[in-house]
């Protein structure tokens, strides 16, 4: 089974593969920068849309534009980092169909490392930096305390973990049905879109399901309420703000289980 040396070697092996793809992408600088800037503009338009709404309204779900920017920026950075780091895991169905999964299985590197690092796309930095700019703009008026700084960092790391788990877990379905990549998108990008807005715009039932069923509310909502110094509008306990890392770890454990089950299914059916 996965002993310590395998785990220790994994980040290095990941870096080798990712670096090779980065070098390959940078071999065509014009194409790289076009795609990077285009990525930033496309995702940036989401926020421009929200900002334009605010020329006619002052609050959305009782939240101001800067507060929404915090939510938007946090989920954007978390999803962007997860997407860049391991978004390629969505291609698992493609690897099954073309047989490249078999090739990967004959290499002395853990399969998850190979699948995630495959076609590593540095151009996603465009999207990430756009979200980071929005986040920085949101941070300006906040009354920063050490605790709030810590919760913000925790929010970004835990958010990355949660999206990481979603990417892996929902991609595993493709071990059974090779064409299910859209399903994973519904949860990752869909979850991201929902959390770009204050959850107060949704009915209570939606908020409950985003907390307990598909816990994307822990990506940004609960920690952001703490950072903004706001009471929970739905009356959830205030310590939910600190729960994000635990939620992330639990989801990562489930994702690891799903991955193992998926790989075992593949090696026992070969299709």
């Amino acid at each position: 089974m996965a002993d310590a040396s395998v785990v220790r070697a994994a980040p290095r092996q990941y870096a080798w593969i990712a670096l090779m793809w980065i070098r390959a992408a940078l071999a065509y600088p014009a194409s790289f920068w076009t795609l990077t800037v285009a990525g930033a503009i496309i995702t940036g338009l989401d926020f421009v849309g929200i900002a334009i709404m605010f020329t006619t309204i002052d609050t959305l779900g009782d939240f101001g534009l800067r507060e929404i920017a915090l939510l938007y920026g946090a989920t954007g950075v978390a999803l962007g980092l997860a997407d860049m780091a391991i978004g390629s895991v969505e291609q698992i169905g493609h690897h099954v169909r073309t047989g490249s999964l078999d090739t990967m299985l004959t290499r002395p590197v853990p399969l998850l490392v190979q699948v995630c690092a495959d076609r590593f796309a540095l151009r996603r930095l465009g999207r990430i930096s756009q979200s980071a700019v929005v986040l920085a703009w949101a941070a300006v008026p906040i009354d920063w305390t050490p605790a709030r700084v810590a919760v913000t960092l925790m929010m970004l790391v835990a958010g990355l973990g949660i999206f990481f788990a979603f990417f892996v877990a929902f991609s595993c379905i493709q071990f059974w049905t090779a064409d299910a990549s859209e399903l994973a998108n519904a949860f990752t990008y869909g979850g991201n879109t929902m959390t770009q807005y204050p959850l107060t715009v949704f009915p209570r039932e939606v908020v409950l399901s985003l907390t307990f069923l598909l816990p994307v509310a822990f990506v940004n909502w609960y920690p952001s309420l703490y950072v903004l110094g706001r009471e929970d509008p739905f009356g959830m306990p205030s310590w939910f703000a600190f729960l994000s890392p635990a939620v992330a770890l639990a989801l990562l454990a489930l994702a690891a289980l799903a991955w193992r089950t998926g790989v075992r299914h593949y090696t026992s059916t070969g299709s």
């Binding site: 090779m20 070098r23 047989g99």
Partner: peptide
Amino acid sequence: FGQRTTLWWDLPLRDSFELLQKIY
């Protein structure tokens, strides 16, 4: 595998070989 390549499709042979050197 004769019917499919184990190399990285978009990369020059040299890059594929160098990566294999590290991986193995």
